[in-house]
């Protein structure tokens, strides 16, 4: 999952980025509104964290422009403005959630999680696709009720796929959303991870939860049972 943090306080931005990275997110940083808007429009971002008091372009204006463009990118406002009017205006501009500073990092993570889930159409923090369940709070996958031990990267691959039920996800898309630097992106590595993931989730090969669609990429098998909601 790739998160854009638009925050002009570099120290706070760095701390948020550090924490998000340690949680397995890929983080892009922007210090002003204009850069932030540009990144949000042109990069494969899954969620944006936006401060309201930004130089160049205010956070509210940034969100309005993004929405005017037709973007449905989940946006979480992170601001020092605690008045209800600011909150109402922020949400009316098109933000999906509003968190005031100082905030608890856990709260931020929980809200981000919820926003990502909602964007994918899930109402509950445990994503379900047939026998496959992913607890986004505990970062734990399970198959038919049995926990499956996954590495952080394997988890992220599965999480990304599960947030896009029924959609084919290309290797390029996966690398873009899961790798911070272009230099590290190697689609062969993705193949290796997907193969390992398949083995862990379905050791005897009966369910085949992750399908390869030639020329399109990977997708959760539609007939897996759950409709994801």
């Amino acid at each position: 999952m790739r998160v854009l943090v638009i925050e002009d306080e570099t120290q706070l931005a760095a701390q948020v980025a550090e924490r998000l990275q340690s949680e397995g997110y890929v983080v892009d940083l922007a210090n002003d509104g204009r850069t932030g808007l540009h990144l949000a429009q042109d990069y494969p971002i899954d969620l944006a964290i936006v401060d309201l008091g930004l130089p160049e372009l205010s956070g509210l204006e940034l969100i309005r422009r993004l929405r005017a463009d037709g973007s449905r990118l989940p946006v979480l406002v992170l601001t020092a403005r605690h008045q209800w009017q600011d909150r109402v205006e922020g949400l009316e501009a098109g933000a999906d959630d509003y968190l005031t500073k100082p905030f608890r990092m856990e709260e931020l993570l929980a809200r981000m999680n919820a926003l990502l889930r909602r964007a994918a159409g899930f109402a509950h923090p445990v994503l379900i696709a047939g026998p496959l369940a992913l607890d986004t709070r505990a970062k734990q996958a399970s198959m038919e009720g049995q926990p499956v031990a996954l590495t952080a990267f394997e988890y992220r691959v599965l999480e990304y796929l599960m947030h896009r039920p029924g959609q084919a996800v290309s290797k390029t898309e996966l690398t873009e959303h899961l790798y911070p630097d272009e230099a590290d992106r190697d689609s062969n590595v993705i193949e290796v991870f997907v193969r390992r993931l398949r083995q862990k989730l379905d050791p005897d090969g009966t369910l085949q939860p992750i399908q390869t669609q030639r020329g399109l990429g990977y997708a959760l098998r539609p007939g897996l049972g759950g409709d994801g909601r």
């Binding site: 008091g53 020092a80 403005r81 500073k101 990092m105």
Partner: peptide, 21 residues
């Protein structure tokens, strides 16, 4: 006052995320 609030709350946020992270 708004500036003061902003300029104090951000360091508080930094402080908080530092001690919690």
């Amino acid at each position: 006052l708004a500036d003061l609030a902003h300029s104090l709350k951000t360091p508080l946020a930094v402080l908080r995320s530092r001690v919690e992270s």
